[in-house]
């Protein structure tokens, strides 16, 4: 990444941030959706037990995966609605920069939601949570967010040029996120759950990193064929 590309990346991110700050629609919608999701899961499962600690990891990541669909669905929406996509594609911006900007913006959205949702989930569901556990959970969040963002940027860029994109995106995105949910929920459970199994935790974290690297490479190899017509 040379200085010119860094300048382009910064400009694209500033643009996304400015658009989001004007309306705040995406972050607010995602945050509320995540809260409602957790409450629904709690009523669906948690009420059958006095201690929801064993389910905490599962509830958190099932909710966050569904929330991610909202965030990924907003990718390229401003460009489409305000009809600027042609201007971005005609500009001398390497497609690598366009895709990276999307992925970084997605990570920021997901982090913004998790800052609120994960501590709340610990208060709601976990009996004996500590700050050390929260720290370990943050690592899971970061790894999972990168993984989700890479896959999300790739798939969202395909669905934006397709019919019925609101329907297409969840069907496209969620199956690929199943491994992320399994690993992130497993890691979170290993930390927050009763067993506190740290070796299990690290195994899941390594898996998340591998997943991110693999799909990062796939995205890197294919995105030229997605954006350009």
């Amino acid at each position: 990444m040379n200085p010119a590309m860094a300048r382009q990346l910064r400009a694209l991110l500033t643009k996304d941030l400015r658009l989001e700050l004007r309306t705040r629609e995406t972050a607010v919608a995602m945050g509320l959706f995540a809260l409602v999701g957790m409450v629904i899961f709690q009523f669906a499962i948690g009420t059958r037990t006095d201690d929801a600690t064993p389910f905490a990891g599962g509830i958190i990541w099932a909710t966050l995966a569904l929330t991610a669909v909202l965030g990924v669905g907003r990718t390229w929406v401003a460009e489409r609605e305000q009809r600027v996509l042609d201007a971005l594609l005609a500009a001398p911006v390497p497609r690598l920069v366009l895709m990276s900007a999307r992925a970084v913006a997605l990570v920021l959205y997901l982090l913004a939601v998790q800052v609120v949702v994960v501590p709340l989930a610990m208060i709601f569901f976990v009996r004996e949570g500590s700050f050390a556990d929260l720290g370990l959970t943050v690592v899971v969040c970061l790894l999972a967010d990168v993984a989700i963002a890479l896959v999300g940027a790739l798939l969202a860029s395909m669905s934006v040029f397709s019919r019925a994109r609101e329907l297409l995106l969840p069907v496209l995105l969620l199956p690929s996120l199943i491994p992320v949910v399994i690993a992130a929920a497993g890691a979170t459970h290993a930390v927050l759950g009763p067993a506190h199994a740290l070796d299990e935790y690290w195994r899941y974290c390594v898996f998340l990193a591998v997943y991110a690297v693999v799909f990062g490479l796939v995205a890197f190899a294919t995105f030229d064929h997605i954006l350009d017509d």
Partner: peptide
């Protein structure tokens, strides 16, 4: 765009197969 997207997704999904397998198997 159909053929190109199909090709990209075919590659993408095949990368997902071993990952799915491993993630399920970790348990």
């Amino acid at each position: 765009r159909r053929a190109r997207y199909s090709a990209v997704y075919g590659i993408f999904a095949f990368a997902g197969v071993p990952l799915s397998f491993y993630s399920v198997r970790v348990a």
